[in-house]
Deep mutational scan, measured.
Amino acid sequence: MRVFPVYAPKLIVKHARIFLTGVIWVKDLGRLEFEKGRFLLPRKSLPKVKQAILELNELIEAQN
């Protein structure tokens, strides 16, 4: 598990694309899981977490 002390979308996306499957922890967002290079949306999450995951997945799609 990698810990990101700040929310840096480009760096987080780079990590997810390299490792494809895993878990990261982002300060103020908490634990985020990714599989096959995409972030998974938890069943229950705060609106800011949901927005961050959608933003990260959009960045991943834009890079493909």
Score class of each variant (00 low, 15 high):
Val49Tyr: 10
Ile60Asn: 04
Asp28Thr: 11
Phe34Arg: 00
Leu32His: 01
Pro47Arg: 14
Leu11Ile: 08
Lys44His: 09
Ala62Ser: 12
Glu61Arg: 12
Phe4Val: 02
Pro9Trp: 02
Ser45Asp: 07
Arg38Val: 13
Pro42Gln: 06
Arg17Leu: 14
Lys27Asn: 15
Leu56Lys: 01
Gly37Cys: 08
Leu11Arg: 07
Gln63Phe: 10
Arg38Gly: 05
Val6Lys: 08
Gly37Ser: 06
His15Asn: 03
Leu46His: 13
Val3Tyr: 15
Pro5Gly: 07
Ala8Val: 10
Gln51Trp: 10
Phe34Pro: 00
Lys36Asp: 12
Lys44Gln: 10
Gln51Phe: 07
Ile53Thr: 05
Val26Pro: 00
Met1Phe: 03
Leu29Gly: 00
Ile24Asp: 01
Asp28Phe: 11
Tyr7Arg: 01
Pro9Asp: 03
Leu41Thr: 11
Asn57Trp: 02
Lys10Gly: 14
Asn57Tyr: 01
Asp28Gly: 14
Pro9Thr: 04
Ala62Thr: 12
Gly22Leu: 02
Leu40Pro: 05
Lys14Asn: 14
Ala8Phe: 08
Gln51Thr: 09
Gln51Glu: 09
Val23Tyr: 10
Arg38Met: 11
Phe39Pro: 02
Lys36His: 14
Leu20Lys: 07
Glu58Pro: 01
Gln63Thr: 13
Phe39Lys: 00
Lys10Leu: 12
Leu54Trp: 11
Phe19Ser: 12
Ile24Gln: 00
Val26Lys: 00
Leu41Trp: 09
Ile18Arg: 09
Arg38Asp: 03
Ile53Asn: 00
Lys36Ile: 05
Ala52Asn: 03
Glu58Gly: 14
Arg2Asp: 14
Pro9Val: 04
Leu59Arg: 05
Val26Trp: 02
Arg17Cys: 05
Lys27Glu: 15
Arg2Phe: 15
Gly37Val: 06
Phe34Thr: 01
Glu55Lys: 09
Leu11Gln: 10
Asn64Asp: 14
Pro5Cys: 15
Lys14Tyr: 10
Ile24Thr: 02
Arg2Trp: 15
Met1Val: 15
Val23Asn: 08
Met1Tyr: 01
Phe34Asp: 00
Lys10Tyr: 14
Lys14Trp: 07
Pro9His: 03
Glu61Thr: 10
Pro42Lys: 06
Ala52Thr: 06
Val26Phe: 01
Asp28Leu: 06
Pro5Leu: 14
Val26Tyr: 01
Pro5Phe: 14
His15Val: 05
Thr21Leu: 07
Leu59Ser: 04
Leu54Asn: 08
Leu59Gly: 04
Phe39Trp: 02
Lys44Trp: 11
Ile53Phe: 03
Gly37Leu: 05
Lys36Phe: 14
Pro42Arg: 06
Phe19Ile: 14
Leu11Glu: 14
Pro47Phe: 05
Ile53Lys: 00
Val3Phe: 15
Phe34Trp: 03
Ser45Lys: 08
Leu20Asn: 13
Leu54Lys: 13
Leu41Cys: 06
Arg31His: 05
Gly37Pro: 00
Ala62Asp: 10
Lys27Met: 15
Phe39Arg: 00
Ala16Pro: 01
Leu46Ala: 14
Leu40Tyr: 06
Leu32Asp: 01
Ile53Ser: 03
Ala62Gly: 09
Leu56Glu: 01
Asn64Tyr: 05
Lys10Trp: 09
Ile12Gln: 01
Lys50Met: 08
Arg43Lys: 14
Arg31Ser: 04
Leu11Phe: 05
Arg2Val: 15
Ser45Leu: 12
Val13Lys: 02
Ala8Leu: 13
Val23Phe: 06
Gln63Val: 10
Ala52His: 05
Val23Thr: 12
Gln63Ser: 12
Arg38Pro: 01
Leu29Lys: 03
Asp28Cys: 05
Ile24Ala: 05
Leu56Gly: 03
Leu59Tyr: 06
Ala52Gln: 04
Lys27His: 15
Lys14Val: 08
Leu56Tyr: 00
Ile24Cys: 05
Phe39Cys: 01
Arg17Glu: 14
Leu59Ile: 10
Glu58Cys: 08
Val13Tyr: 03
Asp28His: 14
Pro47Ala: 12
Leu54Thr: 11
Lys50Glu: 06
Ala62Phe: 12
His15Ile: 04
Arg2Gln: 15
Ile12Gly: 00
Ser45Thr: 12
Ile24Lys: 01
Tyr7Met: 03
Val26His: 01
Phe19Ala: 15
Phe4Tyr: 05
Met1Glu: 15
Lys14Glu: 15
Glu61Ala: 10
Ala8Thr: 12
Ile18Met: 14
Leu41Tyr: 11
Val3Ile: 04
His15Gly: 01
Arg17Gln: 13
Asn57Phe: 01
Asn64Leu: 12
Lys48Gln: 08
Val3Glu: 14
Lys44Ile: 06
Gln51Leu: 09
Ala62Tyr: 12
Val6Gly: 04
Lys50Arg: 11
Trp25Pro: 00
Ser45Ala: 11
Leu40Arg: 11
Leu40Asn: 09
Ala62Ile: 14
Phe34Ala: 01
Trp25Leu: 10
Leu40Asp: 04
Glu55Pro: 00
Ala8Asn: 09
Gly37Met: 11
Ile12Met: 05
Ser45Glu: 09
Val49Pro: 03
Gln63Gly: 11
Arg31Thr: 07
Phe4Trp: 03
Arg38Glu: 10
Glu55Met: 07
Ala62His: 14
Ser45Val: 12
Glu55Gly: 06
Pro9Phe: 03
Phe19Cys: 05
Lys10Val: 12
Arg2Glu: 15
Leu29Ser: 01
Leu54Tyr: 11
Asp28Gln: 14
Asn64Met: 11
Trp25Met: 10
Ile18Glu: 15
Pro42Ala: 07
Val3Met: 03
Ile60Cys: 05
Glu58Lys: 12
Arg43His: 09
Val3Asp: 06
Lys27Pro: 14
Gly22Glu: 01
Ile53Gln: 02
Pro5His: 15
Phe39His: 03
Thr21Ser: 13
Leu41Val: 09
Ala52Asp: 00
Val3His: 15
Glu33Tyr: 15
Arg2Ser: 07
Glu58Gln: 14
Leu11Thr: 06
Pro47Gln: 15
Leu46Met: 12
Lys36Asn: 13
Lys10Asn: 13
Lys14Ser: 13
Ala16Trp: 01
Ala62Trp: 10
Ala62Asn: 11
Leu54Glu: 06
Trp25Tyr: 13
Val26Ile: 06
Asn57Pro: 00
Gly22Cys: 05
Pro5Ser: 09
Lys48Gly: 07
His15Phe: 06
Leu56Ile: 05
Phe19Thr: 15
Val6Ile: 13
Met1Asn: 15
Glu33Asp: 13
Arg43Glu: 11
Leu59Asp: 03
Phe4Gln: 01
Asp28Met: 08
Leu11Met: 08
Ile24Asn: 00
Leu29Thr: 04
Arg31Gln: 12
Arg17Pro: 01
Ala62Met: 13
Leu11Pro: 09
Leu41His: 14
Arg17Ile: 11
Ile12Phe: 03
Phe4Lys: 00
Ser45Gln: 10
Arg31Lys: 15
Lys14Arg: 13
Thr21Lys: 13
Phe4Gly: 00
Val6Arg: 06
Arg17Thr: 14
Glu55Leu: 08
Pro9Ser: 04
Glu33Val: 13
Ile24Glu: 00
Ile18Gly: 07
Arg2Asn: 07
Pro5Lys: 06
Ala16Lys: 00
Tyr7Asn: 03
Ile24Pro: 00
Ala16His: 01
Phe4Arg: 00
Phe34Glu: 00
Leu20Gln: 10
Thr21Asn: 14
Trp25Thr: 05
Phe4His: 02
Leu41Pro: 08
Met1Arg: 06
Ile12Lys: 01
Leu20Cys: 07
Val6Asp: 06
Ile53Met: 03
Glu35Val: 12
Ile53Glu: 00
Pro5Thr: 08
Gly30Thr: 01
Pro47Ser: 10
Pro47Gly: 09
Lys44Arg: 12
Phe39Thr: 02
Gln63Asp: 12
Glu35Ile: 10
Lys50Gly: 06
Val26Cys: 04
Arg31Val: 10
Asp28Val: 05
Pro47Tyr: 06
Arg38Lys: 12
Glu33Ala: 13
Trp25Asn: 04
Gln63Ile: 09
Leu29Met: 10
Glu58Ala: 12
Tyr7Pro: 01
Glu58Trp: 09
Tyr7Gln: 02
Val49Glu: 04
Val6Met: 09
Gly30Arg: 01
Asn64Glu: 14
Lys14Asp: 14
Leu56Asn: 02
Val23Glu: 15
Pro9Arg: 04
Leu32Arg: 00
Arg31Leu: 07
Glu61Ile: 11
Arg31Asn: 05
Arg17Tyr: 08
Leu46Gly: 13
Leu32Pro: 01
Pro9Glu: 04
Gly30Lys: 02
Arg17Met: 13
Leu41Phe: 12
Phe39Gly: 00
Leu20Trp: 06
Glu55Asp: 07
Leu59Ala: 05
Thr21Cys: 07
Leu32Lys: 00
Asn57His: 02
Lys44Ser: 07
Lys36Ser: 14
Glu35Trp: 08
Arg38Tyr: 14
Ala16Gln: 02
Thr21Arg: 10
Ser45Asn: 13
Tyr7Phe: 08
Glu35Leu: 10
Met1Ala: 13
Ile24His: 00
Lys48Pro: 07
Val3Lys: 11
Phe19Asn: 15
Val6Leu: 07
Pro9Leu: 03
Leu32Glu: 00
Leu54Pro: 01
Val13Gly: 04
Leu56Pro: 01
Leu59Val: 08
Ile60Glu: 03
Ile18Tyr: 14
Pro5Val: 09
Ile18Leu: 13
Lys48Tyr: 08
Lys27Asp: 15
Val13Thr: 09
Glu35Ser: 08
Ser45Gly: 10
Val13Ile: 09
Arg2Met: 15
Lys10Arg: 08
Leu46Glu: 08
Leu32Phe: 14
